[in-house]
Design a protein around this nucleic acid. Sequence first.
DNA 1: GATTCTATTTATAACTA
DNA 2: TTAGTTATAAATAGAAT
Lengths: 188, 188
Amino acid sequence: MARKKVALWYIHNDSTRLNTLKKRTKNLMKKASEVATLCNAKACMLVYGEGTTMLEVFPSNAEAVAILNRFKSIPEVPQLKKTMDQETILSKRLVQLRHQVEKIRREHKDCEPRILLHKAMVSGHLPGNIEELTTMAWKLEIILKSVGERITKRNGQPPVYQAQAPYVTSGMGMGSPMYQALRQQHEG
Amino acid sequence: MARKKVALWYIHNDSTRLNTLKKRTKNLMKKASEVATLCNAKACMLVYGEGTTMLEVFPSNAEAVAILNRFKSIPEVPQLKKTMDQETILSKRLVQLRHQVEKIRREHKDCEPRILLHKAMVSGHLPGNIEELTTMAWKLEIILKSVGERITKRNGQPPVYQAQAPYVTSGMGMGSPMYQALRQQHEG
DNA sequence: GATTCTATTTATAACTA
DNA sequence: TTAGTTATAAATAGAAT
C-alpha cells in the first residue's frame, strides 16, 4: 500500500519479505491493542514467520494461552447470534472464564522464563513443572543459537561443542550450586 | 483515523463502540491474512467483544486452535522481544531485575557468566568478545541438556530436538514443534 | 541489514440514508 | 440498526541512507 499497490502474493525477495513481515506484524499488534482499548475487547494474535524468522505474540504469552483456553472451552464457536438462553449461559460462562484468566495471569506473574532462568541461575533451583521447563528450554535454545551464530561470525567456523559430564569451567562451573542441584535432580 | 484523530480510550457510546469493533476487527483479519499470504507466515487471531457481543476468529476455528496449541507448547517469544500490552508489567519487573544485576555486578565482576547470561536474557544483547560468548554458549549447552533430561523424566519421552548448523547441541534443539511445523510449510 | 523518508494506498471517524 | 460516503489519519512499498 504505497508507492505501488502490492499484489497479494508471496514476496519472493527475501529482504523485502522479511521487512514486510516485521512492519506489518508490528502494525497488526498495534491495531489489535487499539481494538482492545477502544472496545474493551479481548484479543490475541500470533504470527509465525518462516523458518525461525520470528514469532510475535499479542498481548503476551500467558494471556494468549489464557484466551486460547477460553476459546477452546466454548464448545462450538457460536456466531453468538443464537437464542437468548444460550447467550445468557455463554455470558455466565465467559464471566467464569475471565476469573480463570485472572487467576492464571496471577499465577503466571512469576513464571516468565527470563525470571525463572534468573532464579535458576541464582538459586540453583529449576522450575517444577513441565511447561515451565519446556519454556525455559525453548528460550535457552534461542539464545544458544544466537550465541552460536555470533561465534561463527567472529570465528569463521561454527563452534561444535558437546555438552558432557561434569566439567569445571571458570566462573560458573559444574561445581556451582546450580549444577549441584541439577545433578541431584537427575540422580534423585 | 479519519475526520478526526480518535483518542485511544474506551469508547463510551454503545453504537459507536460496536461499530468500531466490527470494522476494525474485520480489517485486522484482513491484514492478518495479507501477512500470511505475502510472507508465508502462520497467523491466527481471536477477538472477543464485550459480553457476548462478538467472537471473531482468524483464519478458522480449527486452524486457530492448531496454531495456538503449537504455540502453547513453545510459549516464549524468541529474540527475547517484548510483547506489547504487558510491557508495563514487564518493564517494571525488568527494572527490579536490573537493580539486582547491578548489585551483583558490584559484588562480583562483570564477566560472571550468569550475569552475562542474565543480561542477554533481559536485554537481548550478547556479550562482545569471543571468550565470553564461548563460555556462555557452553553454560547454556549444559543447562539446556539438564532441562531436556528433566523434561524426559517427567514426560516419559525425550524431547528429540535437533539443532541446525552452525552448532550442535546434544539435547534440545530445532526439532521443536514450531520448527517442525515451519519445515512442513517450506516443504509443502 | 537496519533506519528513515516520501508518495501512495488503506483504514476509518464521522456523516448520511 | 445496518449499509454507503467522504475527509482525514495511518500504514506502507520502495527508495535513500
